[in-house]
Design a protein around this nucleic acid. Structure first.
Length: 219
DNA sequence: CATTTGATGTTCT
DNA sequence: GAACATCAAATGC
């Protein structure tokens, strides 16, 4: 799917119901929206990479059926349960690391998944780490891909996003008219909740599934 | 092009 | 044993 088609599909999938009325708490989805445009930086012995965040998903906590917090405090969710401003990195499908920023107070269990970034610095290092990516946009247009490209791994979970190996800095803000909202990708529970945020027309956002289009029309 | 399938292994029931 | 916030290669038009 071309990037323009992905953005168009996402735009047409925008739910007609305002976010405001739907959920018990807006803290985490506000963070998810405001994280668009922020700069993600990761430092490893190999070097430092920087990239602009262009796609996020909010996971609201224990009352969100798709959030890992519903399982309670386990080995995996230890760092999800706070405090805010720290990394929650977990392994998915036994192969890929997913990076989240914890958003709520200790014990709550809410976080924002970073799903795609637009590279700014360290392109050569990213290409070395992602030899299979034929085009630059394939380097970081997915949560597993961006972790590979930037060197994000599980040992970074629980580290501070202010002075740890992964740092989030302020970036150029993204205007509301450039933000698209869709349901979250790759989940089965709460599959219609509109908590995925992306910068429309950015070539580095991940593909929006086609069935989102039909779902929006059914309602 | 779009859609399906196989890889891969940790975590929790 | 089943589920899984994924990715890349293979297959179908």
């Amino acid at each position: 799917m071309s990037q323009r088609d992905a953005a168009r599909t996402a735009r047409r999938s925008r739910p007609g119901v305002p976010l405001t009325a739907r959920f018990y708490d807006r803290a985490t989805d506000i963070v998810a929206r405001d994280l668009l445009g922020a700069v993600l930086e990761c430092s490893t012995p190999e070097g430092t990479t920087r990239a602009r965040i262009v796609e996020t998903e909010a996971y609201l906590g224990p009352d969100d059926p798709a959030c890992h917090a519903v399982a309670g405090l386990t080995r995996r969710t230890e760092h999800l349960f706070g405090p805010p401003g720290f990394a929650y990195v977990y392994l998915i499908y036994g192969m890929y690391w997913c990076f989240n920023a914890v958003t709520r107070e200790r014990g709550h269990g809410a976080a924002v998944l970073v799903r795609a970034v637009h590279p700014l610095d360290g392109l050569d290092l990213m290409r070395r780490r992602r030899p299979k990516a034929m085009r630059d946009r394939d380097l970081t247009n997915g949560p597993g891909k961006l972790s590979l490209a930037m060197g994000i791994v599980g040992t970074m979970s629980g580290e501070s996003l202010r002075d740890g190996p992964i740092i989030i800095r302020a970036g150029d803000p993204v205007a509301d008219e450039d933000v698209v909202v869709t349901p979250r990708i790759g989940i089965t529970r709460a599959a219609d909740w509109p908590l995925r945020f992306l910068v429309c027309n950015d070539p580095f956002v991940s593909a929006t599934p086609k069935h989102f289009f039909r779902r929006a029309h059914a309602t």
